[in-house]
Amino acid sequence: MTETRPSVGTLVAPLVSSLIADAATLRLGVERTATGATIVDAGINVRGGLEAGRRITEICLGGLGYARFAPDTRFPRWNTAIHISTVDPVIACLGSQYAGWSLSEGDFFALGSGPARALWAKEELFGELGYKDKAESAALVLETDKRPPDALIAFIAKECGVAEDKLTLILTPTTSLAGSVQVVGRVLEVALHKAHALHFPLERIVDGTGVAPVAPPAADFLGGMGRTNDAVLYGGEITLYVEGPEDEAEQLANGLPSSTSRDHGRPFGEIFAGYNFDFYACDAGLFSPAVVTVTALSTGKSFSAGAFMPELVEKSFRG
């Protein structure tokens, strides 16, 4: 499998170069460290914006997915949605976009997502995917409101097997417009992650799309986390196209929606506070879209499950 998969790092390189070249237009900050690494600020000391978030979402997808804004009439007042599509949903979402690299140095902590994860490839998940990337450059997206320490930058480059001048780190605080977009843009990824948790064979997932309302940024980290999660949990919708028996497609559809979780039905901020702000104490089954459709390619029959909660989206987004 490894030899037949495209290199997400190679595919993303021109997207990263374009983001940096357009930094002034996109209201991004660009810093070159003393050792040559590139730091892109998408909302800490600069404003950033929606278009920056859209392009960062495509970088997170490893050049194997597309993010587009489109009108959305499902939720009054919140009439802009981000649509996600991929040409290889498993590698795009789980091999690149998933925030699976935990990074810390001193008081700095962030989860890393994007194509550099596949160069590092030390998560157990990569063994299951049978995928490890080879590329000359590395790009990693960090959900943080702080610049990473130089020691951590050097560590990331070493772990990816690239020189520091071939490393780009993109910083996206949850309170920013770009950060909000790139988190909501994970609507398809969370469905793939839950399908994996349900032990559905990933190699049978052929294609997928997703859509979720763009959440307005909040004034603080916890508010931003709540709104972006609510956008997906109560306003997100995905479609998967799978191979295999029809009854297994139906079973997957019934198991995927966020409504299958014991924590479903309350704003995520409230759920999070109820667990003393311990993210890992939350029911993992909650993190999935509100509505899912799974199509069995063997028969062409589709199965849908879940429901939107527009009143909760409204409550969350208005604050």
Rank of each mutant, 00 (worst) to 15 (best):
F126D: 04
D278K: 04
E203M: 08
I39S: 12
Y234R: 04
N45T: 15
A284Q: 14
R54P: 06
K122E: 12
K315G: 03
K166A: 05
V141F: 03
H83I: 15
V242A: 09
S7E: 01
Q182P: 02
F277E: 10
G265S: 13
G36V: 09
I156W: 10
P217W: 01
T35F: 03
E270F: 08
L252N: 01
A116T: 02
T57D: 09
R47Q: 11
F75L: 14
G95D: 05
E136A: 11
D207H: 10
F303D: 02
H193K: 14
G127C: 07
N276F: 06
Y280C: 12
G130D: 08
I44H: 04
E128C: 00
G179R: 07
K122N: 08
G106S: 10
P216I: 03
E270K: 11
E314Q: 08
P217T: 14
G179N: 13
F109E: 14
T86C: 05
A215M: 00
G100M: 01
A92N: 09
L140Y: 10
K315H: 05
L15E: 03
G265F: 14
A212F: 01
E270N: 02
G265Y: 08
R27E: 15
R147C: 07
Q251E: 13
D145Y: 12
V40G: 11
D247Q: 07
L125P: 14
A231G: 15
L198A: 09
K194W: 06
N229R: 13
P115V: 03
V183T: 12
I59C: 09
Q97L: 11
G49F: 12
R266E: 10
E51D: 15
L222G: 01
G274I: 08
M225I: 12
V187W: 00
P76W: 02
G255D: 05
A231D: 03
E128H: 09
P6N: 00
A305L: 05
R32G: 08
Q97T: 04
E51N: 09
H196I: 08
F303K: 06
F108A: 10
P89I: 10
F155Q: 14
A138R: 02
R266S: 13
A253P: 13
F279R: 11
A138C: 06
P76S: 12
W120D: 07
V313G: 04
L103M: 14
E123A: 04
F303Y: 14
